Computed example of a mutant assay.
Amino acid sequence: MADYLLFLLFTGLRRQEVAALKWSAIDLNDLSFTLKDTKNREPLTLPLTDFIVQLLESRKVIKYSEYVFAGDGKAGYLIETRRQVQKVTEFSGVIFTLHDFRRTFITITENIDISAYALKRLVNHKMSSDVTASYIVNDVERLRRPMEQISLKLLQLLKV
């Protein structure tokens, strides 16, 4: 559960996108991963940061499912998190939702002056009718530096 929460925080992804993440979507050679079933129905490929690579490598040792965050239910991946979130709330005294991790990721990204276009791409928000955005090529390598900067800022704030 701790790894799941960290993955949410360090990627800014939606809880279902992370919960249903399969090992087959992760490319440790290219240091990236691809989500095919996203809220906006557009596939998303993101770079893996050093921190997330370490997290995934430690999970691979205990790999026993096609899902990175396996669960006991019929779906095969982690679905119910309320009890664990409640335990974290009791321990920390901080009331939060899983979506707050996405908000935190977005706020940190903006606070460290990552471009709005990179931010939108990182969290898979559509560019709408922004003409300028249609000219920008946002491949996984373009997002690698911003993603690593966000990761380093989070590690600094978490004092890890």
Rank of each mutant, 00 (worst) to 15 (best):
W23A: 04
E110L: 09
R15T: 01
R83M: 10
D130C: 11
G12R: 00
L98V: 01
L122D: 00
R83S: 11
T49K: 03
N124K: 05
E66M: 03
G73L: 01
D72K: 13
N40Y: 11
E42C: 14
D37F: 12
R41T: 05
N111L: 14
N124I: 05
A2T: 08
L46D: 01
T49I: 06
E66C: 03
A70L: 09
F105H: 06
V61E: 15
P47V: 06
T45K: 03
K63T: 11
Y64A: 15
G71S: 02
G71L: 00
A133W: 06
F10R: 00
I114F: 07
A133P: 01
D27M: 12
E42M: 15
K22T: 12
G76W: 04
G71Q: 02
R121A: 12
S128G: 08
R102V: 00
L55G: 05
E90Y: 08
L119C: 13
F33E: 02
S32D: 07
V123A: 07
F91R: 09
T104K: 15
F51R: 09
L28Y: 06
T49P: 02
N111K: 15
T38E: 03
F105L: 05
N29L: 05
V88K: 05
K22L: 13
D130Q: 11
D100A: 08
G73I: 02
I26S: 00
D113V: 08
V131H: 04
F91M: 11
D72Y: 13
A118Q: 11
Y67H: 06
F10T: 00
T104F: 08
A118C: 12
L119H: 11
S24A: 06
K63D: 12
F91C: 09
R15V: 03
H99I: 07
V61N: 10
T107K: 08
L35A: 02
T38N: 07
R121W: 06
K87D: 07
V94M: 15
K39Q: 11
D27E: 12
D50E: 12
D37G: 10
D30C: 13
L55W: 06
F69M: 00
E42L: 15
E110K: 14
L31N: 07
V94K: 15
